[in-house]
Each structure stands twice: as C-alpha cells, then as structure tokens.
Amino acid sequence: MSKSQPVHGPRIDHVLAQAPPGAWRHLSAGAGAQGERFCDWAAARLPAAWEFDGDEPTRR
C-alpha cells in the first residue's frame, strides 16, 4: 500500500482507545542518543484492506 492510497475505516485513535489495558506492553524501541527509548506497544487485527481491482479483501 502506498502512502498516497486512501485508507477507509475507523480512525486509529478510536481503535487504540478500545484496546484493553492488558493489551499494552512497555518495551524498548532501542538505544537513543539519551539512552534506552521505551514505547507502549499493542497489536490488533484490523479490517481487511480492499484492493482497487478485486472483489475480495486481499490484505490485513
């Protein structure tokens, strides 16, 4: 998917707000100039993306 392809579906901030507290993990994102960088991570299955030339969703 190119960065110019429009995405249709729920706003990502609404999806993230629905994640239960137990879904999040505080993990290292690697070393930075001022030490270890930490981010909060969660995974979610999003609706399939529709391709322009198909009848069925082809990616998740």
Rank of each mutant, 00 (worst) to 15 (best):
M1I: 06
M1V: 09
M1T: 13
S2D: 15
K3E: 14
Q5L: 15
Q5K: 06
Q5S: 14
Q5W: 05
V7M: 12
V7E: 11
V7G: 03
H8S: 10
G9L: 00
G9F: 01
P10E: 15
H14K: 14
H14T: 12
V15G: 01
V15D: 01
L16V: 11
L16K: 13
A17Y: 09
A17M: 06
A17G: 15
A19L: 15
P20Y: 01
P20V: 13
P21W: 01
A23I: 00
W24Y: 14
R25N: 13
S28C: 02
A29L: 03
A29W: 06
A29N: 04
A29V: 05
G30C: 02
G30Y: 01
G30I: 01
A31T: 12
G32D: 08
G32M: 09
G32Y: 03
G32E: 11
Q34L: 14
G35L: 05
E36Y: 00
E36I: 08
E36T: 08
E36C: 01
R37A: 09
F38K: 05
F38M: 08
W41T: 12
A42F: 06
R45Q: 11
L46C: 06
L46F: 05
P47A: 09
A48D: 09
A49S: 06
A49C: 12
W50I: 07
W50V: 05
E51S: 05
F52I: 12
D53Y: 08
G54C: 08
D55C: 10
P57I: 01
P57N: 04
R59N: 07
R59D: 11
R60C: 11
R60W: 10
